[in-house]
Every structure is written in structure tokens, then in C-alpha cells.
Nucleic acid binder design. Structure first.
Lengths: 215, 215
DNA sequence: CCTACCGATCGGTAGG
DNA sequence: CCTACCGATCGGTAGG
């Protein structure tokens, strides 16, 4: 969708040079990954097309063989990150039975998405959303909407069980705001630290009396 | 501190042209204000020195009569916003008796700071913090620390009264994260809407049973 | 995917 | 505070 004219695209649009299998457009994904990391580090405007191209060992002109514009690679970073995040969360949710366990799964999944090795995509989403021109926002907003709906379904159950009293729309905003804010104070957590943090967050969101050990 | 050599500064460093009172360096504050709004709208890197100078009707070269670098005006935007925010919150806190009322005062003050006419300063702080070079961060971090301490003092009381169970450091991060996130979904609220929102937030943070009317 | 390049714009400066 | 300007860098393109 954000693709300009990479190898796979050409093969997809008709019979080609004799290759019967689609080649993985490795360079395309390398660029997305490099761009994501650079956008996270220096910001969208602070990272140049040359920076991105250099990072994968190509010249700046070649970047535009893969993407028509700089904005297109930003779009691809965000889209890829959200698709992967949705997948992880959906899977995590299947293993959860009770409403409370599902809430924990969402919280942990969200934290993992933000702080995993691919977390740059979500951080870039949070910081650089406004760099996406309004005409191109719709597909990203659809993904975002789908994620929002997942949260609201779980929160409706949590509220039905009497665990929260607030409006679930406000509660969701409170929750994702608190979780997204961790990008400012959580650094390179281990999986165990993330699990402990998710448990603490669920306890704080529900204002539950503390379990024995944890202060 | 972020000043280069404006009128007031010159007069402050010695006897001058016969003026005995300090002139308000109006152009200096105009630049800060214009810069803040432009940084909010287009981002620090997206707004040029020329944009800022144009906004107050001067040429780009003249900008550098007031500020040595573009970064200095960003610094001034942030510093000014935080100083004003601290003042507002301190005053609001004096009128609050109970711990719960103090929490409400903090929440409302924070929301007002973000969504007031000067809210651009705080939004810029949130989005452009990393543009401040590490050597220049200390004074801003001191202001931030002071604000943090104010929160922690109130939260300690709130916890003492048994209103929350979580660790107050985590609770504070949850709270400010949720409040800062409102920049993404609250638009031009009236004072009344802000008060209602603050009340809802306090209820959600404490997971209190809902009052009668509000859903 | 590279070379060579374009016009535009950037932050900042010299001299008044 | 303005004029006139600098070197650097930017996103993007033509042609292969």
C-alpha cells in the first residue's frame, strides 16, 4: 500500500522475468526498519532521507526507488507497527479467561508493543502522527479504531463485573494515556519487569488493595 | 537566562541611555509566544526562524538580535510555560483543604495548564523535550522536579487517608500520563467542561462509585 | 539501484 | 532591528 515499485510489486502486477516465487523485498523492509529507528531517535523531520539510505548502505537517490516520498516510509513504519501490535494483542487475549485477566493481557500487550525491539514503530506513531497528511490518515485511523474497539470490549466486561465504576471511554483514555507515558520513564525493561509493571498498573487502574509483597 | 541581548538585559547590566525604568521587552515575549504557537502547530523542526520572525513582523536576521540560537527560544517557551504553570497550581492548591480536594486541584490545574490559551507551552514541552540539548536541560529538569514534588506531597496525603492503594510514584505517573494524553482528544474545552473532566478523572483515578447524575 | 544534479530552504552572520 | 548574504542540507528527479 505504501509501496512504490519494489520487486514484489512488479511481480505482483503481472508475469515477470521467469521467477515463479515472490522474492522477499528485503531492502524494502530494511528501509522501513532503519527509518523507524531513525525517526524514533531524531524525529521525522530530524532524520533525512540520506540518513535512512545510509543506514542500509544505499544512496539517497535509491531510496526513491522504494518509496515515492519520505512520508510514505513514515506511513509504512506506522502501519507495520500497528499491524504487528494488533496481532500480538489478539493472540494474548485468546489465552485470557476472566475479564480481569483480559485487562491484564491488554495492558501487558500494550507495554510489550511499546518496549519491544519493534517499539520504535509505536513511539513514532505517538510522536509523529501529525506528519501524516490528512488524506493519508484514514487507513491508519481504521487500525487505531480496531485497537480501540478491542479495548472497549474488554472494558465493558470489566465494568459489568463491577471492577470499575467510571465510564469505560474515559477509563480507556486514562489507561492508554498512562501506558503510553511509560515511553518517558521506562528504559529497556526485561520481560519480567514488564510483567511486574503490567500487574502494578492493573492494580492501580482498579485501585485494588495491594498484594502482600509489593510495596 | 535564555536572553541574548534585549533591551532589558542591556539596561540591567549597567547605566544606559537615560531610561531609569526597565522597558518591557515586548518584542522578546512576542517572539516567545509566536514561537510557542508555531512549534505547537508545526513542530520545532517544522517551524523555521523565518516563520517565527514573520509572525511578529520582523526579518529573520532580527530574530538573532533577541535569541542567539533557535534552541534558545524553544528553551524560553518551555521555561515560561512551566513557571506559569507552577504558579497557577500553587495558588489553586492553597484553596484546597482535604487531600481529595487537593488532588482535584492538581488535576484541574494540570488540565487548565494544558488547555488554556498558553497551553502551547506545555504541549511543546511534551513533544519537543528531546530537542533541548542535554547541557541545557538542567534548569528545566529542576522545574519539572519541583512540580513532581508537589504532586508527590499531595499523593502521600491521599494515600494516608486510604483513598489509593498503589505506590504513589506509580500513581503519579499513571495520573500525569492520563492527563497529558488529553492533548490528543480534548479540543478547546470551556472552563466548565474542564471542571467536569477533572471531577471525572479524580473519580476514575480513585475508582470511586459514580455520583448520581453522571454516567 | 547509482550518479549527478536541481531549486528551495535552512540556521546563522557581518556590517551597519 | 534591517539588508544582504553564506555554506550546508534538504526532498526529490533525470537518465541510465
Amino acid at each position: 500500500m505504501a509501496k512504490k515499485n519494489g520487486t514484489a510489486n512488479r511481480q505482483g502486477s503481472g508475469p515477470s522475468t521467469g521467477q515463479t516465487e515472490r522474492q522477499p523485498p528485503a531492502r524494502y523492509w530494511e528501509l522501513i526498519r532503519a527509518a523507524g529507528k531513525l525517526f524514533e531517535e531524531k524525529g521525522y523531520q530530524g532524520a533525512s532521507v540520506r540518513d535512512i539510505a545510509d543506514a542500509v548502505g544505499m544512496t539517497s537517490g535509491s531510496f526513491f526507488y522504494h518509496f515515492a516520498t519520505k512520508e510514505d516510509v513514515l506511513f509504512a513504519v506506522m502501519e507495520g507497527g500497528m499491524l504487528q501490535g494488533l496481532e500480538v494483542v489478539t493472540k494474548k487475549l485468546e489465552g485470557a479467561r476472566s475479564a480481569r485477566e483480559q485487562l491484564y493481557a491488554l495492558v501487558l500487550g500494550h507495554l510489550e508493543g511499546l518496549h519491544s525491539e519493534y517499539g520504535y514503530a509505536h513511539k513514532v506513531w505517538l510522536r509523529e502522527w501529525r506528519q501524516i497528511s490528512p488524506e493519508k490518515r484514514a487507513p491508519l485511523e481504521a487500525l487505531s479504531q480496531s485497537y480501540r474497539d478491542t479495548w472497549l470490549q474488554v472494558l465493558a466486561k470489566v465494568k459489568n463485573e463491577g471492577l470499575i465504576a467510571a465510564d469505560i471511554a474515559l477509563f480507556r483514555r486514562m489507561t492508554v494515556g498512562a501506558l503510553n507515558w511509560t515511553v518517558h520513564w521506562v528504559r529497556n525493561p526485561t520481560p519480567e519487569q514488564l510483567q511486574a509493571l503490567a500487574a502494578d498498573f492493573v492494580g492501580a487502574f482498579l485501585n485494588e488493595p495491594n498484594p502482600e509483597v509489593r510495596r
